[in-house]
Each structure stands twice: as C-alpha cells, then as structure tokens.
C-alpha cells in the first residue's frame, strides 16, 4: 500500500515542482496577495489613524488563512485533473492501486503544495509588515487543518464532477471557491451579512473559522462553540465528498468513462 502511495506522491511532486513555471505559480500568487493586501492596509491605516485593533494583523491573517483553503482545493483538484488531461486514468485504474490510496495521495500532495506555497508568503508578511501569524498560537494549526479540509472537500467534489460530466466542469476548479467566498466572512464579520446570507454562511465551515479567528485576534476570546461547529461540519463535508468521489468512480466504471478520458 505504502509503495503505491509513495509512487503517486512522487508522480504529483514531478508534476507540481518539475517545471519552473509551475513551481513559480505555486509561490507567486500567495506572495503577491500578501504584498497587495499588506500595502493596501498600511495605506488605510496611515490615512485613518485606525490602528487600534491591529487591523493589519486581521487582514493579513484572513488573506493567508483564505489562501490555505484555496491552495488546498487547487492542489487536490489540479493533481487529479492532470491524470485526466494526460489521458493517464486508464493506466492508473488498471494498476493494482486501490481507490482509497488515490484519495490519500491526493490529500497528501495538496498538503505539501499548500505548505510549500504559503511559506514564502508568511515570511514576506513578516519581513515587510512585521506580521506574526503565529500570534494565533495553537489555533493557527487548528485553523490551518480545518481550512485545508474544506479545500479537500471542494476538491473531491470538483474532481468528481469533471470525471462524471467532462471538461465543461473544469472551470469549477477555479470558480467554485469564489461562490463560497461571500459566505465565508473572510474580511468582515458574520453580522454584516443580510440575515438570509448569514443562515447560508453558517452551513459552511469557513464562516465559523473566520469568526473564531477574529474573536481571538480582536477580543482574545476562544469561542469553543464555534470550534466544535467547525469540527463537525468539516467531518461531515469531508466524509461526504470522499464518498461522493468514490461513488462517481464506481459510476464511471459502469458508464465506461475511465477509458480514453483526456484532452
């Protein structure tokens, strides 16, 4: 089992880090986002004398945490789509690999890509803006894993839809996250949303995560009710999305979709 998972991880490493443009794209966007939001927030602070709440810390924490979700989803989806694009699904599924081994490999490569992609952004934020993400302490790890789990859940959903319905759904890999963004309360509190949107937001884990983050950074308060919600919602979505992914593979076998899938 481990040799097959390692084989897949090496394969995804070769795809992700094998070419210079791809490697750059992993680092580039998180770092640019940090620079953009950092300078913009500095400008706002200098013009409004509004620095009492550590607004820079709140915004940069939000940017980095949101990017964990985005990178996590993209890392998983892109790795799977690469198998479809390179017409390699047939070879993969006629090998002795088990479907759960593919699931584990996709999760691991997403984790590795996300950590590698975000590390420079965290250093840039620290160097240019004296920003300390680790101010969140233990909860940084908690938020990191819960946000990346949201990314994985969305990644399995998108991968399943592309496998089942074809290339028309590929756009979802980039777009779906922006459907979730307004409901995630990344840059504003939940109460600033209209009541209907608040109800929808609470169905998804990110709103709970970003509310928790603000409570810690602004009020130094740990909201255990939110943390429990995060855990339960994430568990539900991750398990559901993996079951959905496996079900779609089974349907694909029935419909003959695993042969000759590709560009």
């Amino acid at each position: 089992m481990f040799s097959r998972i390692i084989a897949l991880l090496i394969r995804y490493k070769n795809i992700s880090f094998g070419s210079f443009p791809r490697l750059i794209s992993i680092f580039y966007w998180p770092s640019v986002q940090i620079l953009f939001w950092g300078f913009f927030t500095n400008f706002l602070i200098s013009n409004n004398s509004y620095s009492g709440l550590g607004i820079l810390n709140i915004i940069l924490s939000a940017v980095i945490l949101w990017d964990i979700l985005f990178r996590g989803q993209l890392g998983l989806t892109m790795s799977f789509l690469e198998e479809i694009w390179s017409r390699n699904l047939t070879n993969l599924f006629i090998s002795p690999i088990k479907e759960f081994e593919l699931v584990i490999s996709l999760i691991f490569i997403s984790l590795i890509r996300t950590i590698i992609g975000l590390t420079p952004a965290i250093f840039i934020a620290n160097y240019f803006f004296d920003f300390h993400l680790f101010q969140l302490g233990f909860f940084l790890i908690f938020f990191f894993f819960n946000l990346i789990v949201v990314g994985w859940s969305i990644g399995f959903l998108v991968s399943s839809l592309v496998l089942r319905y074809g290339h028309a759904f590929e756009e979802l890999a980039w777009a779906i996250i922006f459907v979730l963004l307004p409901f995630s309360c990344v840059y504003y509190p939940l109460e600033s949303l209209p009541p209907v949107m608040q109800k929808i937001s609470l169905v998804f884990p990110p709103a709970h995560i970003f509310e928790s983050m603000r409570e810690i950074l602004i009020n130094d308060l740990i909201r255990y009710d939110l943390l429990i919600n995060i855990l339960f919602l994430n568990l539900f979505y991750l398990i559901s999305s993996i079951i959905f992914f496996l079900k779609i593979i089974s349907i694909s076998r029935k419909k003959g979709l695993l042969i000759n899938q590709g560009e």
């Binding site: 394969r11 795809i15 198998e83």
Partner: peptide, 28 residues
C-alpha cells in the same frame, strides 16, 4: 496483468524514466 494501447498515454510532463519508475512502484 498489464495493458498497452496507443490510445492510452502515459503522463506527458514526466520523462520516460520517471514514468517507468512511477509504474514500477505502482506495480510493486
């Protein structure tokens, strides 16, 4: 068991050697 078809590719962005290593590991 194994299979070969001109209509089924190997990963294009990997070298031939990387592909052969990958499948060797996959088949143990």
């Amino acid at each position: 068991v194994n299979f070969q078809s001109p209509y089924v590719d190997l990963p294009k962005k990997m070298t031939v050697e990387q592909n052969l290593f990958f499948y060797s590991r996959l088949y143990g």
